[in-house]
Design a binder for these strands. Structure first.
Lengths: 188, 188
DNA sequence: CCCACCAGGGCAGTCACTGCCATCGGCGTA
DNA sequence: TACGCCGATGGCAGTGACTGCCCTGGTGGG
């Protein structure tokens, strides 16, 4: 039998989400989170850089999935189609974890500091997507711009998904948002 | 003669920018900033919500200019063209204040916390632009998406401007970035 | 001349975050 | 079996951002 309970990191993530939901982000102290996880404040900061980061542990996996979706697409698929496919792959991931994703989104949308962190994570996704598109042979300003546009599409679709009726499908919201963007951006 | 030197707020802004440039953002304390401005820490926090906000005092004016550019455009101008015009108006503003804009950008790009703040300010611009576009009769998901796209265009153009050769013109970089986006986003 | 009104100062307190050192089971190695 | 290193956690003191509360002293209107 080991000296400590396993999965300290996971316990911290769960405790934090619970407390942020119960009391709000800024009425929750790191000491409280650590205590609920059976740990100390010092240990919290060994696992997470700060009090916000504990809500963004899945960001790395998200990025891998997004980049993988673009890189692994067969070469016959046109670039923008590859991006659309990768976004839909993300959509499936979100749908599968809606029990985590939805409360987490409630917490974030209640707090500007958390929104800031969310935005920089999104920017990181856009950067990764830009690199992936470059490796698929897209030239530079276009790679960056379409990556940013893709992330915006996903964000808008996500918000429509969250605030809309229960039976909406995120993947098809992504599709239709992309079409909306194409229409809106075209020279009027 | 008044009890205090005038323009405390402006002095704080200048002192902060100088110190952030000299020592870096996180090696600078609020006490130092206030001291250089001939004030105290307590007064700093009466003018600015936090240590980052002091770099973003111009955000309100930026938003007004952007929104104004869209609202005031004659009705004959197609919506996306009005947005392009508003972005170019911002570009002129940036060019006129390049002596402030460029060092400020150096400070921000050296620090992730400041980048977070910058991103949420950009998101605020996108929100304001969305509202403005709605008032110009653009339907909802399209208004939001084209506003986000427009902000992305401006951001990319700005980075090209900053990192490119001295004689580049921001307004034309905005124009060409918008064209790039149109091409990249179109169904391939 | 008086007073309400600002803009700013002083001060103590909370909390996020860090550096440094201590602890002690597990596990490889002699 | 004994030794000793490693790795996850704890303890603790310190810094600095930010806040609430009260105080001060010119200024301008009545």
């Amino acid at each position: 039998m080991s000296r400590w309970e396993p999965n300290a990191r996971g316990r911290l993530e769960q405790a934090a989400l619970e407390l942020y939901l119960e009391q709000g982000f800024d009425r929750t102290t790191v000491v409280e989170i650590a205590a609920r996880a059976g740990l100390t404040e010092r240990t919290f900061f060994r696992h997470f850089a700060d009090k916000r980061e504990v809500l963004f542990a899945g960001a790395g996996e998200l990025r891998e999935r997004l980049v993988g979706g673009v890189i692994d697409a067969p070469p016959s698929v046109p670039p923008m189609e590859a991006v659309a496919g990768a976004l839909e792959s993300l959509a499936q991931m979100f749908h599968a974890r809606r029990d985590l994703v939805l409360p987490r989104h409630r917490v974030i949308s209640a707090n500007p500091e958390l929104q800031e962190r969310e935005l920089i994570k999104m920017a990181g996704l856009a950067q990764a997507l830009t690199d992936a598109r470059r490796r698929r042979g897209v030239a530079d300003p276009a790679a960056r711009l379409s990556a940013e546009a893709a992330i915006a599409v996903f964000r808008v679709a996500f918000e429509r998904w969250v605030s809309g009726p229960e039976r909406a499908d995120l993947a098809s919201l992504v599709r239709s948002s992309l079409e909306e963007l194409r229409g809106a951006v075209a020279a009027d």
